[in-house]
Nucleic acid binder design. Structure first.
Lengths: 187, 187
DNA sequence: TGTAAATCTGGACTCATGGTCCGGAAATCA
DNA sequence: TGATTTCCGGACCATGAGTCCAGATTTACA
């Protein structure tokens, strides 16, 4: 059921174009069933998001690959943001539908991202001034709005440019200086 | 006409609640007239935005007060972001309506903010790597999403904390180090 | 296995809202 | 005053989220 919705979102040229009727039809199921299963459009989007993000979440929380405890928090944060960027681009229509609607900020998934980001920042800066880690986490994630990313891509910024700038910002948010940054990136 | 709409937005508890019918009724005018004047809901919001932002724009472009040419670009940027923050909070419902809809990024007003921000950054960093100024400008503005700001306020961050963190971020985006920042802020 | 009760299902229906359209009012002109 | 043009209001339309109920299906039990 979610699969059908997923396919529709992937194929549609805009998330508004994917109506609940269309999803119901694609599952060969009545609209009532759809609503009974997910409560609302937002509920369905959320459920879809949950299945999509599960792998990302698992990989981060496994503590493997770039998220090992002995990796610098700066590098873990950079890797995390990069992963989110890729994830959003891979699911751009779904993400756009989510980010257009109200209340994403309250969603557990966003809250999770926020928590992970803030924790990395705290870890990397010792004990930052009250609230600074949270603010910086919010700010870093805000720069990942799919609309923003696509606008930048459409206006000539390459994905690599965005990636690099984002990574640099992540380091800066953790008080790394320009010169230290350059040596770090080289590793 | 815009005035009536403005009042409605200010009073309403959410921008979705302000319908075109309501606005038309408040102006004691037919819906047709409303649509003839503004083309669409987005057009009306845009027009309203334009009148609201005019003062801000004038003050920035006048080059007076904190925007004098002999002020550090860093400080001008910080002042600019602060002004936007205040502006958004003063017109939160209108801004929310705008930021919910698609295409704000394409709006001339946003484009103007983006341009001003990017110019300050370029000025303050010499010639940053290709695209970095634009990215950083986008990123700084993204942290000003009204939803984000209100969420932070609702979650215990004080306006001052946000202000300070934002100012610091602005400086950081221009390659100012932590220690230089501390001396600068004191002035 | 037959039947009654409980549960589930599909899609017709309601409702809200942005946007269109046309009959007639007002203004302009002769 | 009468003809012509312009403009206006609000009835009307289209769309899409969410509701609801008649009937199908499953379960419960004798």
């Amino acid at each position: 059921m979610l699969e059908a919705a997923d396919i529709l979102f992937a194929q549609a040229d805009g998330p508004e174009r994917v109506t609940m009727d269309a999803i119901a039809a694609a599952c060969s199921v009545g609209k009532g069933t759809l609503f009974r299963a997910f409560g609302s459009r937002a509920g369905l989007l959320d459920a879809l998001w949950a299945t999509k993000i599960e792998a990302l979440r698992a990989s981060v929380e496994s503590g493997a690959a770039p998220f090992r405890q002995d990796t610098l928090p700066q590098q873990r944060l950079a890797a995390f943001l990069d992963l989110i960027l890729t994830f959003k681009l891979d699911n751009r229509h779904l993400i756009r539908a989510l980010e257009f609607g109200p209340g994403i900020l309250q969603s557990p998934h966003y809250r999770w991202m926020l928590g992970v980001t803030a924790r990395f920042i705290e870890e990397g800066t010792g004990s930052p001034p009250e609230g600074a880690a949270l603010y910086n986490a919010h700010a870093l994630l805000a720069a990942l709005h799919i609309d923003l990313i696509e606008d930048m891509l459409a206006n000539g910024l390459s994905l690599d440019t965005i990636r690099d700038a984002q990574t640099k910002r992540a380091y800066m948010a953790m008080g790394i200086t320009e010169s230290d940054y350059k040596t770090l990136v080289r590793t």
